[in-house]
Amino acid sequence: MEHDREEPRLPRPRGPLSRGVATYLRGAGGLPRLEEIVRAEVYGEDLQLALYLCYELHYRGFAGVSPDREWDPGLLRVRAALEQRFLSALRTDARVHDSLDEALADLLVEPVDGTGVSHFLRDEGELWHLREYAAQRSLYHLKEADPHAWVLPRLWGRAKAAMAAVEFDEWGGGRAERVHARLFADLMADLGLDTTYGRYLDAASAEALVTVNLMSLFGLHRALRGALVGHFATVEITSSPGSRRLAEAMRRTGAGPAAEHFYDEHVEADAVHEQVVRHDVIGGLLEQEPYLAPDVTFGIDATEFVEERFGARLLADWRASRSSLSAPLDRETTHTS
C-alpha cells in the first residue's frame, strides 16, 4: 500500500465560511468576517469544515497551500472565533456529570439492549452501511491517536509514562505494519475504499467533522489538556465492546480479513488501554493537578455528546434507506495504486 506521498486536496466548500478559508489558503482572497462566523450554524457543515481546514494545517496540510499558513495570525484569529463558538456550544449542550467518578462509571456500564450504530451494524448492517461508516470514520482513524500526542509535553510522571505507552501501542509498538491508522487503511482496502489520507473529507457529514474537530480542539490547547485526557478515556473505554460488535458485522458480511482484524485488535488492545488510561493517565494527572477533574469530566461528556449526534444521524439516514454521506462514494474516482 503506497499512499500519502502528496498532501490532501482542498475539499469543496460547503458555504461562505469554508469557501472563505479555502480561498485564503490558496492565497486568492480574504478571510471570512467575524459577523459571518457569529451567524453560522455552530454544528453545521460550513462552520465545521472551515474549522477542519484550519486544524488540518497542523496535521498534513493541503496540496498547494503553504505550510507557513499554519501560524498565519489572520487565520489563527478566524480559528479562534470558530473555536469560541464551538466550545461554548459544547459547554451548553453536553450533558454534565456531577463528578468524574460518575462519568466514568456510566461509561463502564454496557447496555443490555444497546441501540447504537455498532448494534445496528452487527445485527442488520449491509456492506454499503459498513463502507459509509468506514469512509466517515476514516477522517478519525487515519489520524488515530495523533492529536492525543499533543498532550504528552503537558503531562509528567506517571501520567506521561502511561500516555506514551498507550500511544506507542496505538502506533504499532514500533512496527509500521501494526500502526492502527495503517490497520484502518487495510480495512478500507478490504471494503473497496480509497485509502488516501483525506480522500473522504468531501463525503463526511457535518456530524463526522464535529467528532474530529473536537479532538483537534482539545489536542491543540494546553488549557484543554484535561478535556483531551477525558476524550482519550472515552474512546478507549467504549472501544472494546463496540469493536466486538463491529468485528461481528465485518465477519457476517464477509468484509475481509483486514476489516475483521482491525476491530479484533481493538477489542484486545483497548481492554488494556482503558485500564491504563483510567488508573495511570487520569489517576496520575489528577494526583498532580486535581483541579483538572471537571475538565476531564467535560471531555468525557463532550465526547459522548458528539458521538451520540454522529450515531443518531447515521441511524436516521440508514433507517430511511438514505446515504449518510455528503458526497456519494461511487461518484468519486477509484483508487489505483
Binding site: E110, A165, F168, D169, G173, E268, A271, V272, Q275
Partner: peptide, 21 residues
Amino acid sequence: DRFRVALCTCRRSRRYPWCDT
C-alpha cells in the same frame, strides 16, 4: 507483545485468556 496485557479473570471473555471487557 503488548507493553501490558489484561488477563481475563471473570472467565467470560470470548478472547480468553485476554480480557475483552
